[in-house]
């Protein structure tokens, strides 16, 4: 009997979306995914309430929200520890190291041919596995998390940056040569700007990797704060609404991180065809 309203909400929202999607205007293209997301939330809430799903298995969105709103200071502390100290500092260090390495090996075709296959190979490996080793080396605090993030983001950014530095064509390089530009001039005025779309591709891919690395590394040992620590202890206490609140924080942080990087990208690579409207 309780399945009837759930089905009704689903069909109603889907029908509304079908009508809106056919209009295909700018407004509906924003509205349709929003309605879809809201419908999923409503259905989730209805299913949990109608079938009395225990919150140990799946808490309702309202419970998660209550836990989120009630634990703001706690969640903020975890956010600072894991995202700002661990993930962000590691991501910045790893990105800088990768960019410098890419520029260094770019001068030597021999090193390029040697490092690129290895870089591509390493980028596909389950690098997260080095987390226990790095936690052993750098201790339980954020330094070990930053180290894991550095290793995780290094190779994807390196591979993208090397590809980016090779992205100029012979005509453009010849033009710089006819202006008798030196290595550094042509690097800063031509090749680095040309490499930016590739670099930002790597930076965007690695935003999620950085968060994953920082959180998972906390499962191998952490101080008594941090998102990974909170997730594992809250699971132990069966406080699932708090776990989901941490996931909500991770989701918001991940989207914000990605959004900020894309925003910078659209400012830096405004000339690239993919940015034109």
């Amino acid at each position: 009997m309780s399945a009837l309203p759930i089905l009704a909400v689903w069909l109603g929202a889907w029908g509304l979306n079908a009508v809106l999607a056919r209009l295909n205007t700018r407004l509906t293209r924003i509205l349709v995914p929003l309605i879809f997301g809201a419908t999923l939330l409503v259905l989730w809430e209805m299913i949990v309430r109608a079938y009395a799903v225990p919150s140990v298995i799946l808490p309702a969105p309202s419970q998660i929200w209550a836990s989120f709103a009630g634990n703001i200071p706690l969640l903020w502390g975890d956010f600072v520890q894991t995202i700002l100290k661990g993930a962000l500092s590691g991501w910045v260090m790893g990105a800088l190291a990768a960019i410098v390495t890419a520029i260094a090996i770019d001068r030597s075709p021999f090193l390029q041919r040697g490092l690129l296959p290895i870089g591509n190979f390493v980028a596909a490996l389950p690098i997260i596995g080095i987390a226990p080793i790095l936690v052993m080396w750098f201790g339980f605090d954020w330094q070990s998390k930053a180290a894991v993030v550095v290793v995780m983001v290094f190779f994807p950014i390196l591979v993208n940056m090397v590809a980016g530095l090779a992205a100029t064509d012979a005509l453009q390089r010849d033009l710089m040569a006819t202006w008798s530009a030196g290595y550094w001039q042509s690097l800063f005025k031509m090749r680095l700007p040309a490499a930016m779309p590739f670099l930002f591709n790597g930076l965007k891919i690695t935003t999620t990797l950085a968060l994953i690395g920082a959180i998972v590394a906390e499962f191998f040992g952490s101080p008594t704060r941090g998102m990974g620590f909170r997730i594992s202890t809250a699971v132990g206490q069966l406080d699932l609404p708090l776990v989901w609140a941490e996931i909500l924080v991770a989701a918001i942080a991940g989207s914000l991180f990605y959004g900020i990087v894309s925003l910078i990208e659209s400012r830096v690579t405004f000339w690239h065809p993919s940015q034109r409207r």
Partner: peptide, 20 residues
């Protein structure tokens, strides 16, 4: 239009971290 934006957005969520 309903699913695709969420599929793309979900890429930015560190879902692996909740695997345990």
């Amino acid at each position: 239009q309903s699913v695709m934006p969420w599929a793309v957005a979900s890429q930015t969520v560190p879902i692996l971290a909740i695997a345990p």
